[in-house]
Design a protein around this nucleic acid. Structure first.
Length: 506
RNA sequence: GCCCCCAUCGUCUAGUGGCCCAGGACACCACCCUUUCAAGGUGGGGACGGGGGUUCAAUUCCCCCUGGGGGCACCA
């Protein structure tokens, strides 16, 4: 919680353009955004593209698209600019160079000419000997004249920060309190690479200071290097920001959620039929809680109550089943009817077989939407549940599906029951009462007359009319399918059963 | 190997010294409702990792152990 005397809240999402953001990563963006909105501060996006070799073209667009899909907006960013721009690190190179020069001049940093081979050998030796890993090389104490000469000659080199060798370093993490480490464990990390690009260790303080970031929110994997970062902030003369190291998310296998450990891209969830609000809600409460009972939150409510302090520090396991449950809650309780129909329609438009004419019938979708919303957890389940509404004819399932329980070995009985149903419904139509209540009455009456358990008759009808065992409620379904197709499908199924029976008899 | 962080049901969590023989949610099981499938309802099993302290009193505070996670690049 910022006190009145503190700076206004400015937080950021600072991804690298190395591909699509996945859920582990995006939760940090959600929490940061929530905090900015909660405090009335700003949220901005900054692209950390200082490693040219790892850059994946198109990443930025995918990143922004992921944010947009989740309903996260930004006040400043690479696409829209802002008062502290540019928001792409590769466009800010002179700033880093200048900072590095300043550190060099103040004897806070030095040029290092060690080659990658030498460094690799050093690491190997440390590993073999079990000594403290890190750069404890000779360049730190190189003679000033030699350095000047080699630099002059154009020898490739990097700039390293000179960490203190004695004493301790303490910094504060909002969620964990003070953390202190021995300086002898801090090695001299590279801040400017030989290609003149900065490393994160330099770009981060330079930008977060220049962009007035109040809270440095980042993943817990940065915790071990935070003491070194803090030293650089201090050397640069920048007041330290508030550090918030957010816990990592664990995959089902117990490892940090990443592509190797089952992480999925945000947009993959869209593809698989998750609703953005459901994913947003789920991710927010994964590792954060308001109280002992609230699980479902609107964005507005979250903005109202979200506090960084309530984030729990232990890593949470991503629970796919709970996400699915929550998506179901959103489908049936937290999405307006028309929006839901729109989502169903978009899905069907894509997934229905090509012989179904496009655009698909929207009013039809609106009719059955209320029937299926409580039996759909993921949008991807929709097509399989309702495709028969769009097909002029339905192929009945094989006879053995019909001939179960009451109908075992009684194809003729089943066929005649279907014919009776067709007849009764056809008659119902003549009276002009084609509505689900009337359909139900007629079929219940028929079951009674045939001395059948209602369920035994309904099951036959369901299979005949929809071609499936699992369907929306039967009478409403028949109502929507219409009397013509309904009667026809019942008769088709009946004759199919008789044909199969006689074929089997022969 | 070294450094850092963490530790309540299978999972996510509530709990900040007595309200807790620990509450909620997902998942699981049973029953109810029922035209299938869902949804819904009711009930059930299920946790404070271990050992030392501190205290009249520890899930809550301290230490050790154990366990889990993270990090040790001219990557972020």
């Amino acid at each position: 919680m910022p006190e009145a005397t503190e700076r206004p809240v400015r937080v950021r999402y600072a991804p690298s353009p190395t591909g699509d953001p996945h859920v582990g990563n995006i939760r940090q963006a959600i929490w940061s955004w929530l905090y900015a909105r909660h405090t009335g501060g700003q949220f901005y996006v900054r692209l950390e593209d200082t490693d040219q070799s790892r850059s994946v073209p198109g990443s930025l667009e995918r990143i922004l698209e992921s944010l947009r899909w989740l309903g996260i907006d930004w006040d400043e960013g690479p696409d829209i600019g802002g008062p502290y721009g540019p928001y792409t690190q590769s466009e800010r190179l002179p700033l880093y160079r200048e900072a590095a020069d300043r550190l060099l001049a103040g004897d806070y940093a030095y040029r290092c000419f060690c080659t990658t081979e030498e460094l690799a050998a050093m690491r190997e030796r440390q590993k073999a000997e079990g000594t403290l890993p890190g750069y404890w090389g000779v360049c730190r104490d190189l003679d000033a004249g030699v350095v000047a000469e080699r630099a002059q000659r154009g020898d490739p080199h990097v700039v390293r920060f000179k960490m203190p060798r004695e004493g301790t370093t303490t910094f504060n993490d909002l969620l964990r309190g003070d953390i202190t480490v021995e300086n002898r464990t801090l090695d001299d990390m590279v801040i400017l690479k030989s290609d003149q690009f900065p490393t994160y260790a330099l770009a981060h303080p330079v930008d977060d200071h220049a962009m007035q970031t109040s809270h440095v929110t980042r993943g817990e994997e940065w915790l071990p290097s935070a003491p070194r970062h803090v030293r650089i902030w201090d050397a640069l003369g920048y007041p330290r920001p508030t550090f918030v190291h957010m816990p990592v998310i664990l995959g089902a296998d117990g490892g940090k959620l990443s592509k190797r450990h089952g992480a999925k891209f945000v947009l993959e969830y869209a593809e698989e039929g998750y609703l953005p609000d459901a994913l947003f809600n789920f991710l927010t409460i994964l590792g954060w809680a308001l109280d002992d009972h609230t699980e479902i939150f609107s964005h507005e409510r979250l903005i109202e109550v979200f506090e960084l302090n309530d984030i729990s520090v232990n890593p949470a396991t991503f629970d796919q089943q709970k996400l699915e449950w929550m998506n179901g809650v959103y489908v049936r309780e937290h999405t307006p009817e028309d929006e839901l129909a729109e989502m169903f329609a978009r899905r069907l438009e894509r997934e229905l077989p090509p012989d179904v004419p496009r655009p698909i019938d929207r009013s039809l979708v609106e009719e059955f939407a209320p029937l299926i919303r409580e039996r759909v957890r993921l949008l991807s389940e929709v097509t399989d549940l309702v495709d028969f509404f769009f097909q002029p004819e339905v192929t009945p399932p094989p006879a053995e599906i019909f001939l179960q329980k009451r109908w075992k070995d009684d194809a003729e009985g089943a066929a005649s029951a279907l014919d009776e149903a067709a007849k009764a419904l056809d008659r119902l139509d003549d009276t002009g009462e084609w509505a689900h209540e009337a359909i139900e009455a007629v079929l219940r009456d028929l079951a009674d007359r045939l001395e059948l358990k209602p369920g035994d008759l309904f099951t036959l009808c369901r299979l005949a009319v929809t071609g499936k065992r699992i369907t929306p409620p039967l009478f409403e379904t028949m109502d929507i399918v219409g009397v013509g197709p309904t009667v026809e499908r019942l008769r088709n199924a009946a004759s199919m059963l008789r044909e199969t029976a006689s074929a089997g008899a022969r």
